[in-house]
Design a protein around this nucleic acid. Structure first.
Length: 1009
RNA sequence: GCUCAAGUGGCGGAAUUGGUAGACGCGCUGGAUUCAAAAUCCAGUUCCUUUGGAGUGUGGGUUCGAUUCCCACCUUGAGUACCA
């Protein structure tokens, strides 16, 4: 243990001491009953991966920790918790490979995370830790799922209500008047019909209304992962995790009726303080478009007499007279029904061809226009003219109705399609040329050739067209959203089990008082041979309605014991509400007690990565709105302010390996051979630009191989090039010089560098046993931090070598929080040196160097300008600039030889959010018993910054030439006189008379002429 | 293609109610200290053809004055992708 007062800054001892102290005294425990104003600072909780943290991960945590500590100094009761999103795919993939239970590896990974987090000195309230994979936690995830099941969305009240209110309506009035968000095509029934339905029939109907429902849906199936994926888990047509192929497949799945909340999710964005880009991605994801639904009647053809209707959605009902064809998605249900015999072969061939194209091909190739004519015609609602009905894969089955009214003059895709298939392109825009391309803009159009819409603008024509369509009963105004209901089932093991069992195929909820339903044990984490999810392997996975327990599968009799659901919940289930659990983490009666919920309300500041824009952040908002509707919480939005921290990139290091190209064996085949020669960066540049130098090196190489190794092939003429090869950044110093010995003896590279010959800056071969001055420089490049690029920097090593305070300061010092920026360990010596200077300022050479001396004017000026700047910076989340400010302050106070306690004590408080360990240590050396975190933030006093004079920049035509110290209270006239009389002014003017003299008192003087 | 960011020394970056461009730090150069190295300290460090001139991606514009405001363009990064 640490004792006495060391003269040197012994960060390892100091940091360990205070981390232990904080943990032991629960210094950062948030109070639930408190008169202080609350402040809730949250980080997006991590998935505990096996790789542990690299220096990029803590960036956001450091920023939020600074803010949390700052808010404590400002008198707030701060909730700053941390936990783990501990269900997830990687642990399960690892389990499949090794047989290790995911719970075991997860526990190990969490231990590593915790150790790494602890050593950085975060002020987390660990007494509130949550883990999504903990049954005490997922009990409530299951509970929320049940609440969603027991709810429907009433459009009339614009909120979710208990399913009981819906049943009451059905019992008394049937469903004709119900305005709900529900499945399409629900049959209308009366009250008496409802009451006559069997229980199963009733349940089947209710399922179409519930906010979470079981339905056969077309899903994104990932064969490699053996599970379905949500839209936001697919990036560029492949799985976000692992990059595996994804195909469309119909499966019975739990879904969440998030589409019910589309409008509120959109509107709510205006109420929250998020970045515009993040709000924009959510807006795009929700994808609201306002327009009309229009129904086209199919003209009965020779083969069929049925009267089919084609409903379409359009944002441009004003262009309805420009329709010259219709296009259906190839998957559209009507296609097979309306295709004429003549066209059947062609249509079927086309459908087959498009089905074969993967989603990825379709996305990659948007230029090729394909389609087929069905042979059928639809009737134009107004002109009654026949319109040919085509199919084409540019129309998406999943959006709108899967069919479009094609207006080639107003939509480029329709235009291209019409051109390709020689379909007429009628022009309905007055004075607009459409011979080259469609005119898609809505502004400044005047509709023509459109009967009763002639002469109208987009807005007027849209209104009028909708009214006319409504009169015909063939359309109405409609708003469409791109946002689809979210698939909630995963065919995986390591996730929350559903509290669901099946009676005659109908899902039944387990009563909430029997929760949690714990994840069963399985012997293998793979799907069953019959293709069921891993839970299908569990032996004890049936629900007994008598004992209300999970029992052996063999007991299933479908009268009292029923099979349980085999899917598990997706990763976003547990993370959609965890911020509430921190408020009351151990409560076993409710997910969080009301008192805690009303005190802490919502998250004031949320920091995390932007990759969660359309997943976690949208789902959380959805669940919170739902919980509010049902009266469980009182807030509408979970995260008031949100900041995305930028990614920290790695600075990769490369050694230039010489590759030789030539015909080495006389076979006349040109080969490229990787030699054992590596060249230093400056020399590599030289041989590329200087043929003479290259020749010299070639000779050396040829000699090496032919003489020493008796390898004749290099004696022939050849050419050389430099191939950059990644090496570990650990072997490179601040001057980009390589530790050759270190690299050679690194076991991870094996024998790669055993025979390596390193050529120095000057072109000399570096020998390791002589102490020459030859150095070898690597080339560098900024890339994403990743193990394969050997540029990963572990915070453990940084903490050991420089300390957590240095790490914290440096991460902030790198640049603006929200920007991506490269990490380069070399630069950390700057902030580390600052901490040493700070230590020296307080400790002197022979012990505490603090006196009760009156602070000087300069001391106070330095202190107060620092208070002002740091406070402004923290409020603006500009942490990088306050680190500079601290450096300037310490430089100034050192130069001023300041020893005044009245200045040095408050300065520690300013710095403590950034560098909590060293400030806590110095604070206690100053005689304080209580933690520095309890100290009040210093008060800024502008009086200390008042100046009597100003060093005016004197510019000529806007260019500053010299400065002049003048009193601040000097009048404009006097300033002009003084400046004009100055010898440097006279010299500048060279006899010219200035046209104008601009004087801004306290700012500048500009002489024009 | 569309949307949103961002372009400033060798590097990370600072400066925005328009007013001394390059703060702070890294690196580099020179010096002190040292047997030597590390560490520490001091000085210098945008560029150039240097009694001066140019300069914040490029070209224009507004202004006494533009990194900051306006217009056009270029480049890079992120997101999104046939959404009717």
């Amino acid at each position: 243990m640490y004792s006495g007062i060391p003269m040197n800054y012994n960060f390892n001892e100091i940091e360990k001491k205070w981390q232990d102290h904080w943990a032991k005294n629960q210094t950062f425990r948030a109070k639930n009953n408190c008169d202080q104003p609350k402040y809730y600072v949250l980080d997006m909780f991590p998935y505990p991966s096996g790789a542990g943290l690299h220096v990029g991960h803590p960036l956001g945590y450091i920023a939020s920790d600074i803010y949390a500590r700052y808010k404590r100094h400002k008198g707030f009761n701060v909730l700053h918790p941390q936990g783990y999103d501990s269900f997830g795919l990687p642990a399960e993939q690892y389990a499949i490979q090794t047989g290790q239970h995911p719970a075991v590896t997860t526990e190990e990974n969490i231990k590593t995370y915790r150790r790494q987090l602890d050593q950085i000195g975060f002020s987390f309230d660990w007494s509130r830790e949550v883990r999504t994979s903990d049954p005490a936690y997922y009990k409530w995830t299951q509970w929320i799922f049940i609440q969603l099941f027991e709810s429907w969305y009433n459009n009339s009240s614009d909120k979710a209500e208990s399913i009981d209110t819906l049943i009451t309506v059905f019992e008394t009035d049937g469903n004709a008047k119900v305005d709900a968000v529900c499945d399409d095509e629900i049959e209308v029934f009366t009250a008496s019909e409802w009451n006559a339905f069997s229980i199963e029939q009733q349940q089947e109907i209710l399922l179409k209304y519930r906010l979470t429902y079981l339905a056969e849906t077309e899903v994104n199936w990932c064969p490699a992962l053996g599970t379905v994926l949500a839209n936001d888990e697919i990036v560029n047509g492949v799985s976000e995790r692992g990059g595996h192929a994804v195909i469309r497949k119909k499966m019975t799945q739990w879904s969440m009726r998030i589409s019910a909340y589309a409008e509120r999710l959109l509107q709510g964005l205006d109420q929250i303080d998020w970045t515009d880009s993040l709000k924009e991605s959510q807006r795009n994801w929700i994808g609201k478009s306002v327009g009309a639904s229009v129904t086209f009647n199919v003209i009965p053809n020779d083969t069929g007499s049925a009267k089919y209707k084609i409903p379409v959605f359009t944002t441009r009902p004003d262009t309805i007279f420009g329709v010259s064809f219709m296009t259906l998605a190839p998957e559209h249900d009507l296609v097979s029904k309306i295709t004429t015999d003549n066209q059947r072969a062609e249509v079927e061939a086309y459908i087959k061809a498009t089905a074969k194209r993967s989603e990825r091909d379709r996305m990659a190739d948007v230029k090729t226009i394909t389609g087929a004519f069905t042979g059928s015609y639809a009737e134009h609602p107004f002109t009654k003219e026949p319109i040919p009905v085509w199919i084409g894969d540019y129309v998406l089955a999943g959006y709108g109705t899967g069919a479009v009214m094609s207006v080639p003059c107003g939509d480029q895709r329709d235009y291209d399609f019409a051109n390709h298939f020689n379909i007429p392109i009628p022009n309905i825009f007055e004075g607009i040329d459409i011979s080259e391309e469609a005119y898609g803009a809505k502004d400044n159009v005047i509709i023509a050739n459109s009967d009763f819409l002639n002469g109208l603008s987009y807005k007027e024509a849209t209104k009028k067209a909708i009214v006319a369509l409504e009169k015909l009963n063939q359309g109405e105004g409609k708003t469409n959203y791109r946002l689809r209901d979210a698939v909630f089932s995963r065919q995986r093991y390591w996730g929350e089990p559903f509290p669901v069992y099946y009676v005659n195929g109908m899902p039944q909820m387990i009563d909430t008082k029997h929760l949690p339903i714990r994840l069963p044990e399985v012997e293998k984490y793979l799907p069953t041979e019959t293709g069921e999810p891993p839970l299908g392997r569990a032996d004890v996975w049936a629900w007994c309605t008598e004992s209300n327990t999970v029992v052996d599968n063999e007991k299933v009799n479908n009268t009292t014991v029923f099979p349980l659901e085999l899917n598990t919940m997706p990763g976003w289930a547990g993370s959609s509400w965890y911020f509430f659990r921190y408020m009351d983490p151990t409560n076993d009666d409710v997910f969080a007690r009301e008192k805690a919920l009303t005190y802490w309300e919502n998250v004031d500041l949320y920091i995390g990565g932007s990759e969660h824009a359309t997943g976690h952040l949208l789902y959380s908002r959805f669940w919170v709105k739902f919980l509010k509707d049902r009266g469980f919480v009182s807030i509408e939005e979970p995260f008031k302010k949100l900041i995305n921290q930028g990614m920290i990139l790695g600075t990769s290091a490369f050694v230039g390996r010489i590759v030789a190209t030539g015909d080495f064996d006389g076979s006349e085949d040109v080969q490229t051979i990787h030699t054992d020669f590596f060249v230093s960066k400056p020399y590599a540049d030289l041989i590329i630009s200087d043929a003479e130098k290259a020749k010299q090196l070639m000779e050396i190489i040829a000699n090496h191989y032919s003489v020493e190794n008796k390898d004749q092939k290099f004696a022939r003429p050849f050419t050389i090039g430099v191939s950059p090869t990644h090496v570990k950044v650990q072997y490179v110093n601040a001057s980009d010089e390589l530790d050759i010995q270190g690299l050679k003896s690194d076991s991870e590279f094996g024998d790669d560098y055993k025979d390596a010959i390193f050529v120095s800056d000057t072109g000399a071969i570096i020998t390791l046993d002589t102490d020459s001055d030859d150095t070898f420089k690597v080339s560098r490049e900024v890339e994403k931090m990743s193990k394969s690029k050997y540029n990963v920097v572990n915070p453990d090593a940084i903490c050991e070598q420089y300390g957590a305070d240095s790490l914290r300061l440096y991460e902030m010092f790198l640049g603006p929080l929200e920007q991506a920026k490269p990490w380069n360990t070399a630069g950390i010596t700057g902030v580390h040196g600052f901490l040493k200077k700070l230590w020296k300022l307080y400790m002197g050479d022979s012990g505490l160097n603090i006196t009760d001396a009156e602070p000087s004017k300069d001391n106070l000026k330095t202190l107060h300008k620092t208070i002002k700047k740091v406070e402004e910076d923290i409020e603006n989340f500009s942490f990088n600039t306050s680190v500079s400010t601290f450096m300037i302050a310490v430089n100034e106070l050192t130069a001023q030889k300041c020893t005044s306690k009245a200045v040095l004590e408050p300065f520690l408080v300013l710095l403590s959010p950034y560098a909590p360990h060293i400030t806590e240590e110095l604070w206690s050396l100053l005689g304080h018993e209580a933690s520095i975190s309890t100290a009040a933030f210093p008060q800024f006093d502008a009086n200390h910054l008042v100046e009597s004079s100003k060093n005016y920049p004197i510019s000529f035509n806007g260019k500053m030439k010299f400065t002049l110290e003048l009193p601040l209270d000097m009048s404009k006239d006097d300033i002009e006189k003084t400046v004009m009389a100055h010898e440097k002014t006279i010299a500048q003017l060279e006899g010219r008379t200035p046209k104008k003299v601009i004087i801004v008192p306290g700012k500048i003087v500009n002489i024009v002429g």
